[in-house]
Design a binder for these strands. Structure first.
Length: 207
DNA sequence: CAGTCCCA
DNA sequence: TATA
């Protein structure tokens, strides 16, 4: 009766534990270097300027940013330092080659840092000009309650408790699905020095 | 155009 | 607080 209870929608792929502990530690070290060069900033909602609860930065030739004045967009430089974003770590490029099924490399890797009380409302990733390429998402640190819906905001949703090292892929018919983070479970990982979660999302921006 | 804000 |  109900739609598939266990199966994921076409194009959605959940790869638990894709990175083992050593690989996760290497990824965190790489991200620490990215953050040293491109400091975390607080993204703000268009028009209202309301701060989001995550802090973010990017690596790659383009980075996703948002502010009160100009809204959501990709740009080649950090909004506060004006410098180009640092390169995407090799391990993430290798992941993209493995799971994306897309010939060209990702242009953007958005780095979102979630403090224990940070959330991300249901939204679509649709600021790219290339929807044939999937979005590839990596979880590091504390577990989170991740919600995924369908391509319409009112579609029913399912929740997953994601753990450090897990990978989620949104491609094909699921490229534009709504998704968000309802809560962080502090203290559920020892990967990071303090409680919190890092999410990395790889995107192809231009065809 | 707005939006991942908020909140029901 | 720095964390990343």
């Amino acid at each position: 009766m109900a739609t598939a209870e266990r199966g994921l929608a076409p194009g959605l792929r959940y790869v638990p534990d894709r990175f083992d502990r050593a690989a996760q530690e290497a990824l965190v070290a790489a991200i620490r270097q990215v953050v040293a060069d491109a400091p975390l900033f607080v993204p703000r909602m268009p028009k209202t300027g309301k701060p989001m609860s995550v802090r973010m930065t990017n690596c790659g030739s383009l980075g996703w940013v948002t502010d009160k004045e100009n809204g959501y967009r990709y740009q080649p430089t950090h909004p506060e330092t004006g410098r180009p974003w640092p390169a995407i770590p090799e391990a993430l490029l290798a992941l993209w080659d493995e799971v994306s099924g897309f010939a060209k490399p990702p242009e953007a890797c958005l780095v979102n840092f979630y403090d224990p009380d940070a959330k991300m409302g249901l939204h679509q990733d649709r600021d790219e000009n290339e929807f044939s390429a999937p979005v590839v998402s990596v979880s590091l640190g504390d577990q989170c309650l991740f919600r995924v819906g369908g391509v319409s905001r009112s579609d029913p949703t399912r929740s997953f408790r994601l753990s450090s090292g897990d990978v989620f892929v949104f491609g094909g018919e699921s490229r534009l699905i709504f998704h968000g983070v309802d809560r962080i479970y502090p203290g559920t990982s020892t990967l990071l020095k303090n409680a919190g979660r890092i999410n990395l999302t790889l995107r192809r921006v231009n065809p």
